[in-house]
């Protein structure tokens, strides 16, 4: 099956470290577009109304999903002057996501033990067809994020 991942970046070029806001995963393109129309009215998002990004995500051998599990890596220095995040994978179950996390750590055990930046892994759980409550009231652009 396929889901539509909705994200937002501020498109005014104000900041060096672009913050990606993951809004949610939707079962249809229409639901993602409807969510965009609502989010364009919210604080922060209304200042970058063209900053929305929709990505199609395909899941093999899955017919129905209530939740999505993301494995995310964050790499940063102690001051968060440098900060980078990447979604390593998107999974239909928590157990699949945890297995992928173990494999990733095993693949990189030699590098990460000597890494001079901080590398952290997170598992995010999002309910399909619901937007993230974290961004549900918008954000304050004056401080560069919520």
């Amino acid at each position: 099956m396929e889901l539509y991942c909705l994200e937002h970046i501020e498109d005014k070029g104000l900041y060096r470290n672009v913050e990606l806001k993951r809004i949610g995963y939707f079962s249809s393109l229409e639901k993602a577009e409807s969510t965009i129309r609502y989010f364009k009215t919210l604080n922060g998002f209304c200042n970058s109304p063209n900053g929305f990004i929709i990505r199609q995500v395909l899941f093999q051998d899955v017919t129905a999903m209530e939740y999505v599990y993301e494995l995310e890596q964050q790499i940063h220095d102690t001051d968060y002057y440098y900060w980078y995040e990447k979604t390593l994978g998107i999974y239909a179950s928590l157990s699949e996501c945890e297995e992928a996390e173990k494999r990733f750590l095993l693949l990189n055990e030699n590098s990460f033990s000597r890494f001079e930046l901080i590398s952290e892994l997170f598992i995010n759980c999002l309910k399909v067809d619901e937007y993230s409550s974290f961004w549900g009231e918008g954000f304050d652009t004056c401080v560069g994020g919520k």
Partner: peptide, 14 residues
């Protein structure tokens, strides 16, 4: 991707 985002990020000034 272009089709889905023609009214979104692809309308930005970037």
């Amino acid at each position: 991707f272009k089709r889905m985002n023609r009214n979104n990020i692809m309308k930005s000034i970037l």
